[in-house]
């Protein structure tokens, strides 16, 4: 701000001594750094430093303990131990989050399209409805699903009435329940970016497509979908990444056989006090997500996803 005012007044007042101009230019050179400073500091304090510390912790010698302290042993074997013991949880996290993301996309795309293109004066109301669940906390929302899917709840009673399934049927404490919880909790993260990109969709392009004798399906594939790809990519990332690290849904709606990597990290840090293993698992989770995201973005970027 001071830099801007400095140049403005420098230009306006003809009597300013010539030395003022280089000072202002100098200030202007520094201003991007100054603007970056708050964000950079934040990142340094709350991301870089903890990450480095965590990386250090993940290499501690595991023969140590909280009571006696840990030695820095550069024990890369911690990572092998972690993978060996918990690869099913890592895999499960990726699979559950992946399925949940796909379902979110399938549900979210038509919804976002409808809100952006067809809702008219209901648009704002519908958007509020998408966000409304966020007015209650994550925990309460997940607990509500416990009631909905409950063994004696209306939904299961109804499904049992159908001749397709047996009396033993249940939803709560199954993978379906966990994925269902993930879909519900992260759906708005999918819908909002999709809405943002679909809302900007130029109607004239759709008309042009029609004028060129494209069928509605062709119009969707060749015009609408490619134009909304940024929304699709942003939405899937915003859904997949937090879903892969989530552990509340698995804990409340699942059983030990549905536990995800987040549950293991939670218990290693808080219950078992095995900090090196917990830190190694956190890094493995981060690495897994990064690899999957990079692979995805590369494909999506080259439009092969379509």
């Amino acid at each position: 701000m001071t830099a801007l005012i400095g140049t403005a007044s420098g230009g306006a007042a003809p009597g300013t001594p010539p030395e003022a101009a280089p000072v202002a230019r100098n200030r202007r050179r520094w201003s991007p750094y100054l603007l970056l400073l708050p964000g950079g500091l934040w990142l340094l304090l709350f991301f870089v430093l903890p990450s480095v510390q965590l990386a250090g912790t993940s290499l501690y010698d595991r023969s140590g303990s909280l009571e006696t302290g840990y030695q820095q042993g550069f024990a890369f074997s911690n990572y092998l131990d972690a993978i060996q013991a918990y690869w099913p949880h890592l895999l499960r996290s990726a699979v559950y989050a992946g399925i949940a993301t796909v379902i979110c996309l399938v549900i979210g795309y038509p919804l976002a399209y409808a809100i952006a293109q067809k809702a008219g004066r209901w648009r704002n109301l519908m958007l509020v409805c998408v966000i409304a669940p966020f007015f209650t906390t994550f925990l309460v929302r997940t607990l509500a699903w416990k009631s909905i899917l409950s063994d004696n709840g209306a939904l299961v009673e109804f499904l049992r009435g159908l001749p397709l399934i047996g009396d033993d049927f249940r939803l709560l404490a199954t993978p379906a329940a966990v994925i269902c919880g993930l879909v519900y909790n992260f759906l708005p993260f999918m819908v909002l970016p999709l809405y943002a990109s679909l809302e900007r969709l130029d109607g004239r392009l759709l008309e042009a497509s029609r004028d060129l004798y494209a069928t509605p399906v062709q119009t969707f594939r060749k015009v609408t979908l490619p134009l909304s790809m940024p929304g699709v990519v942003a939405g899937t990332l915003l859904t997949f990444i937090p879903a892969a690290g989530d552990y509340i849904n698995a804990e409340l709606l699942g059983t030990p056989n549905q536990y995800m990597i987040g549950n293991v990290i939670d218990s290693s840090f808080l219950v078992r006090l095995d900090y090196p293993l917990a830190a190694a698992l956190s890094f493995l989770l981060m690495a897994t997500i990064l690899i999957m995201v990079f692979a995805y973005v590369r494909r999506a970027g080259s439009e092969e996803v379509v």
Binding site: V52, Q53, G56, L66, G69, Y70, Q71
Partner: peptide
Amino acid sequence: VFAGCGMPG
């Protein structure tokens, strides 16, 4: 941090 030696008891 890496140079530092672990965590005290």
